[in-house]
């Protein structure tokens, strides 16, 4: 490993997405003597310069008309061209929605082994060895690229972003050689979930299952979520019943989440639900059935009726947070 490129994305005018800071920190943890360069296709100078706070001093931003609206194909092409121009051997990105589209294309362009959905990385004598969950988290595998390049996509929110230094990174630009065919797919609009935190981005999630008995009881979940500044999640049973929007579903057919705290209320803990949340750092479950499978993966559990427990829990949390 000689040169690592970290693909970063802006969140707003002054900062990067948390997943980008996670990727920068992860790159530093395995770099050894290797050089690290952050690479972006969008972002203000102010936002990009914050890579420096995570120990990466050099940021390269690709400039081209075909990159002005987001295109996964054009981004992958620009990134591959840059990687080749500096003979980079390792590319690290977040395995978020865009990373999942860019990384497989890079693998083909650079004929590089791809390690998706990584939860730990290690420098194994100069190449990256990664651990990742398979079979819905029921097993873990260790994988390594056996070609000259590695493409590493990180499961979002698993790696901790650690600040390191406070210097602004220096920013330079790169002009890729792009043609219209490289921008074959384009994003035409983006509808943000205004005012609502998304489960895929939240640090704490409060989820409700069929034990909540009906959509009319979800204000109790929303209340607890607001106390904890958390996102609201749901099991498939309640999404299929139409109680909650599809975007809130956690699990195999929904979103994979790794918050620092996951609160499961009236959720049995079916394997498909666990597939989406078992890499959470801490799990708190509230269920009236002491034998519910969710308690097998829970760090903290309260055996009781959600309608009695949640208001007390909310009051105790408020008291704790205000003290």
């Amino acid at each position: 490993m000689k040169h690592i490129i970290v693909y970063i994305e802006p969140k707003d005018a002054s900062s990067l997405k948390r997943t980008s800071y996670e990727a920068l920190t992860a790159a530093r943890s395995i770099a050894g003597d290797a050089q690290i360069t952050a690479f972006a296709v969008h972002g203000s100078e102010q936002a990009l310069a914050t890579a420096g706070n995570y120990g990466v001093q050099s940021v390269v931003v690709a400039k081209h008309d075909l990159l002005s609206t987001y295109s996964s194909t054009a981004t992958a092409e620009a990134l591959a061209q840059y990687a080749q121009s500096v003979s980079a051997d390792t590319i690290i990105l977040s395995g978020n929605a865009s990373g999942k589209e860019i990384s497989p294309r890079l693998s083909v362009k650079l004929k590089a082994g791809i390690l998706p959905d990584c939860i730990t990385l290690e420098n194994d004598g100069g190449t990256v060895k990664a651990i990742r969950p398979v079979y819905a988290g029921k097993a873990h595998i260790a994988v390594q690229s056996i070609s000259d390049h590695s493409i590493i996509a990180l499961r979002p929110n698993v790696f901790t972003a650690k600040q390191e230094g406070s210097a602004n990174a220096s920013i330079s630009s790169f002009t890729p050689n792009l043609e219209a065919k490289h921008a074959g797919v384009k994003v035409t609009s983006l509808v943000k979930n205004e005012g609502r935190l998304d489960v895929a981005e939240a640090d704490i999630i409060v989820s409700g299952g069929r034990g909540m008995k009906g959509p009319e009881h979800f204000p109790i979940i929303e209340q607890l979520a607001s106390t904890l500044n958390a996102a609201v999640g749901a099991s498939r049973a309640v999404v299929d019943a139409g109680w909650r929007p599809h975007g809130e579903q956690v699990g195999q057919t929904g979103k994979t989440v790794s918050p620092s705290l996951y609160v499961a209320c009236g959720i049995s803990g079916a394997v498909q639900h666990l597939a989406g949340m078992s890499s959470s750092k801490f799990i708190l479950a509230i269920n009236k059935d002491k034998d519910a499978p969710i308690f097998k993966v829970a760090d903290y559990g309260i055996v009781g009726d959600v309608f009695e427990v949640l208001p007390v829990l909310d009051a105790k949390l408020k008291a704790m947070l205000h003290s």
Binding site: I114, K138, H140, I141, A142, V143, K296, D299
Partner: peptide
């Protein structure tokens, strides 16, 4: 392009309170 070197069942390190 990728080699899978090992597979293990993850150990759960849950607090269990």
């Amino acid at each position: 392009l990728v080699s899978l070197t090992s597979m293990v069942l993850p150990s759960s390190k849950r607090v269990g309170m």
